[in-house]
Each structure stands twice: as C-alpha cells, then as structure tokens.
Amino acid sequence: MSDSQEFYEIISKSILGVDHSKLGDLIGDDYAHRIEAHRGNYKMSTQSAIISAYPIVAKLVGDEYISRLAQKFVEEFPPKAATLTQYGDEFPEFLRKFAPVQKDLPWLSAVAELDRAWFMAYAAKDESSLRANDLQGKAALALPILAPGLTASVNLLRFTVPAYSIWRTNKQDAEVKPVNLKAGAEWAIVWRTSNQVNHQSISQAEYVFLTDIEGDLSFANAYAEAVKYDQKFDLQQQFSHWLAVGLFKGASNAQIDE
C-alpha cells in the first residue's frame, strides 16, 4: 500500500469508526480526536438525508427514533454517490428486516415505500401524457388494442396493511385521523402531473389493470386481468378517469395503431 493509499484508508476508517488506531501516526496523537469534526459532518449529512427523504416515517416515530434508525441504516448502507438527495433507496427494505421495527411497527416499511414513491414521482423524468385530442380520428374499435404504457412518474403500490391510510392522514390532514391497523390490504398510486405530485387509493382490480398497462399490455388485455378481481370493473370509466389525470404515456411514445 502506498503512503497515499494508506492516508485515505486511515482517514476513511476513522470517520466510519471502523479503526482509528493509526490516526495518531498520521496527524499526531494530540490531534487524533479532531476526526470527530469530520465524523460529525458525515453522520449529520447522511442521517439528515434519510430523515428528509422519509418525512412521514420521521413524523410517525419521532426525532430520536428516526435518528437512531437513520444511524443504523447509514452504518449498513453508506452512501456510494454524491447525490444525497437520492440516497436511501434501501431504507424501506432495511426497516422491513430490522427486528425492533418488524416487531413493534410492522407497517412502517410500507409507509416508507410511500415516502419513497412520492420522491420518485417528484424527481421522475418529464413526459407528456396522452390526451383525448391524441385519440381523435382513431376508430373506436382500435381503442381496446392501444398499449400506451404509463408515464415515468407513476408508482403503483400494494400493501398487506393499511399503509396508505396511515401515510395519507399524516401527510395531508391537519388533525391526524385514527387508522384501524386490522383494516387489511390497500393499494395506492403516486404520480406527478406537471409539478404536482398526486396520490390516491385504488382497488385491487385497478392496481392489476394499471400494472398491466405499465407492462405495455393493451387496454383489452389489462381489462381481462382486472375483471378477474372485480366483475363490475368498468373499462370505459377507468380509461376516461386515468386519461383525464394524465397517467398514460403521450402519443409520441404510445403504440397507437389504426
């Protein structure tokens, strides 16, 4: 190992708290404690990034516990890139596997998924969405075979717990409403139109339908799957609603056949 290589190794390991036995050799024993200045910066920046990225998780568990969770997460998944605004992809999965959370707050990782989905929608690629005008002149019979896909900002989520109800009331209600934790499964969608991030609860059939559209299936094929979960699934109504809120990919990207 070259002197330079060793220099970086010693400082890196000292900041991470892995090994600071050689720091004194590098800067003198009288000054080795000053590595705390850099260690403090590292901890503060990385933990703040997680706390900012998961605001509803932070609100639910309080300042002290979110700091401890973030610290544990940073130790296990230190950032690899300088884009800290995007750091923390693995946090929901970390929470799912973290024993104390698993035991006492089994719904927390699902809430974290919603925080992440909000950011992903917020920062997603700008794409034009399909508009009613784009479909003018298309034969009515051609509509079922359209396979437009969904815009890049769309995140479809499914939960075995009422995570969306918990997340939504904590995000938007001035007075947080009680949620029955035994209410069972929920499905949700988070997406962006222009600069506005939107979210709403959806049914299981809608989830299946939109997931299939996202997978480039045609409306007819997606409907065939959705109707298995809801015999009253209304394709016309679904198409009109999601078209109006800008969910389908724009005409330039969509596969629109005559």
Partner: peptide, 25 residues
C-alpha cells in the same frame, strides 16, 4: 478536497495528502 474513497461517499470535504504525488494526481 476528497469526499469519496473505496466506494463510500463521506458527504464532507476532506484534506488530501500535501505532497508531490498528491499534487500530480
């Protein structure tokens, strides 16, 4: 300054070694 080593980003601006080898790099 440096902020990354061994695939970890330290979110800080750390001093490089002060020598000719470091300068060249």
């Amino acid at each position: 300054a440096w902020s990354k080593h061994d695939n970890i980003y330290f979110a800080d601006l750390l001093p490089p070694p002060i020598n000719e080898e470091s300068l060249n790099r």
